[in-house]
């Protein structure tokens, strides 16, 4: 019997994002060289929200970009569902502090691909990883610098992130079969 339990509701998600925005500015030592890069799909919406929160607090205008890592995946050979390739649009990354934003950190393979893709667009001074949910289960030596929520999961579980821009509501839920 599949079960579904809430991890963050709308208000908790809002508070978490505010804290993450503050941490990004701290870790980035201000907003001058900051660039937020969201990973398609929901990382893009999260990066946009974090940008708005940072800009409100700091009076800044932090550039954002979006990254689709589909073409950098290492599993084209293995058969499996794969989303249609999305848009990649990045500002200049040279010498900047790039914050990669994604919804869920799991195996680390998406982030590995994102790091490779960023390297093809320029040479950032520093890259930070910011994720809303760290669900464990890493298959590569990758860790997040800024984490919204850490939750222990089993391999069959799914962590669903809903954002109102795409899904009509804000929530994080754990789906367990």
């Amino acid at each position: 019997m599949p079960s579904r339990s809430p991890l963050l509701d709308e208000r908790a998600l809002g508070r978490t994002l505010v804290r993450m925005a503050t941490e990004i500015v701290e870790r980035g030592r201000g907003t001058d060289d900051l660039v937020l890069v969201g990973i398609q799909r929901r990382g893009v919406e999260l990066a946009d929200r974090l940008k708005r929160l940072i800009d409100q607090a700091e009076g800044s205008n932090v550039p954002t970009g979006k990254l689709d890592i589909t073409l950098y995946r290492d599993d084209l050979q293995t058969i499996g569902p794969r989303p249609v390739v999305g848009e990649t649009r990045l500002p200049n990354l040279d010498g900047r502090t790039v914050v990669i934003v994604d919804d869920v950190l799991y195996t680390g393979r998406t982030v590995r691909a994102a790091l490779d893709e960023c390297a093809d667009f320029g040479r950032p001074r520093r890259i930070l990883l910011c994720v809303l949910v760290d669900r464990g289960g890493r298959e590569l030596p990758i860790q997040a610098d800024i984490t919204g929520l850490t939750v222990g999961t089993r391999p069959g579980d799914r962590v669903d992130v809903f954002v109102s821009e795409l899904d009509g509501r804000d929530a994080v839920e754990l789906a367990r079969t």
């Binding site: 589909t70 794969r82 989303p83 869920v104 393979r109 962590v159």
Partner: peptide, 15 residues
């Protein structure tokens, strides 16, 4: 080459 698309709508959390 095998980059077949997933026709179903995907939600977040798939890494």
């Amino acid at each position: 080459a095998g980059g077949s698309p997933d026709w179903t709508q995907q939600t977040g959390g798939v890494d």
